[in-house]
């Protein structure tokens, strides 16, 4: 039982950076903008969080600075693919290269520095619940903040006028434009807001998981998040389940070995991606039968104001 709980605790820890990045991706893509720059944005967030933590020793400043910095860098994506109307795919990929290079360049002098990792704070009352207590309510503040972000982004997208506008713009920007909504401003803020969440996902590495800086500290988690956005069907609540499921896959890869269960490492490594393809295929087949379209209809498409298509 103890072993089982430890697996779940590890799954939440591994899933948390994925969760933030996926939420960021969901918000951006709900407005119709693909962001393939997640890995780069996470690295920028991780670096800035580490530097601020090193010099101020304040977790709040570190997280805020990571969000701010990633927000600024995602503005590049906003400007290039919204205002200059370039390909979102190319711009996103460039952002990944840029973020990776930038963090490597400025991180060069930080080798050997370490910070104190976040400690766990049990929530009174809740942390004594069997299984769920130690897994979900005996975590660090960033994990608690991630629960809040899931709830807030779900509420924002599905329960507010702003959310309705964002989703509509992701579906039919021309219609929204004719109704007087500023497609570009909404999209720009969705990209920047999403970028800030992605940056916090990166910040979780040096603040909690691995409290030092090495180049490429996120080791490709940004790409898993790209797949997770699709896996979660652009829904913050499903993002929560998806991120923890992927976190569980990462944690299981190690724990299955302890149990002596012999599974091909290649199989375990491809599991998250196979799951994504499988779920996507199954749900798409089901939705097509029922005539439901889940993917934002205008996702990835360049918006030309007042022009015919």
């Amino acid at each position: 039982m103890e072993f089982f709980i430890q697996i779940l605790i590890a799954a939440v820890a591994m899933g948390t950076p994925l969760l933030f990045a996926t939420l960021g991706g969901v918000i951006s893509e709900r407005a119709g903008v693909i962001n393939l720059g997640m890995e780069g944005l996470m690295l920028v967030g991780a670096l800035v969080a580490f530097v601020v933590m090193l010099y101020t020793g304040n977790y709040f400043y570190a997280v805020a600075a990571a969000a701010f910095a990633s927000g600024i860098v995602s503005m590049i994506h906003g400007v290039v693919c919204l205002m200059l109307r370039a390909s979102q795919i190319a711009s996103g990929l460039a952002l990944t290269f840029f973020g990776t290079g930038l963090s490597g360049l400025f991180g060069d002098k930080l080798m050997g520095e370490t910070v104190e990792p976040l400690s766990r704070i049990p929530i009174p009352g809740l942390h004594t619940i069997p299984v769920l207590g130690p897994v979900l309510f005996n975590q660090d503040v960033i994990v608690y903040f991630s629960y809040l972000c899931v709830a807030l982004s779900w509420w924002l997208l599905f329960k507010t006028r702003i959310g309705l506008n964002i989703r509509s713009i992701g579906e039919a920007p021309e219609v929204c434009d004719s109704l007087g909504l500023s497609v570009l401003s909404y999209r720009f803020f969705a990209v920047v807001g999403g970028g800030m969440l992605i940056g916090i996902g990166g910040a979780y590495f040096p603040l909690a998981l691995t409290p030092f800086w090495v180049d490429g500290i996120t080791a490709g988690r940004g790409w898993i998040a790209v797949a997770l956005v699709i896996f979660a069907f652009w829904d913050p609540l499903k993002a929560l389940g998806g991120a923890y499921l992927f976190g569980l896959a990462l944690a299981l890869e190690l724990r299955l070995q302890i149990l002596g269960i012999d599974m091909s490492p290649y199989f375990l490594k491809m599991l998250p991606y196979v799951l994504t393809i499988l779920v996507l295929t199954l749900v798409t087949i089901r939705n097509n039968r029922r005539g439901i379209q889940v993917m934002p209809a205008a996702l990835g498409k360049v918006f030309f104001r007042g022009e015919k298509h």
Binding site: M14, L209, T210
Partner: peptide, 20 residues
Amino acid sequence: EVLWINSWFDPAKESDAAQA
């Protein structure tokens, strides 16, 4: 006891493996 992370470099996973 040996745990394989099946990667040359993945700090978060290395840390998790050590913890396990």
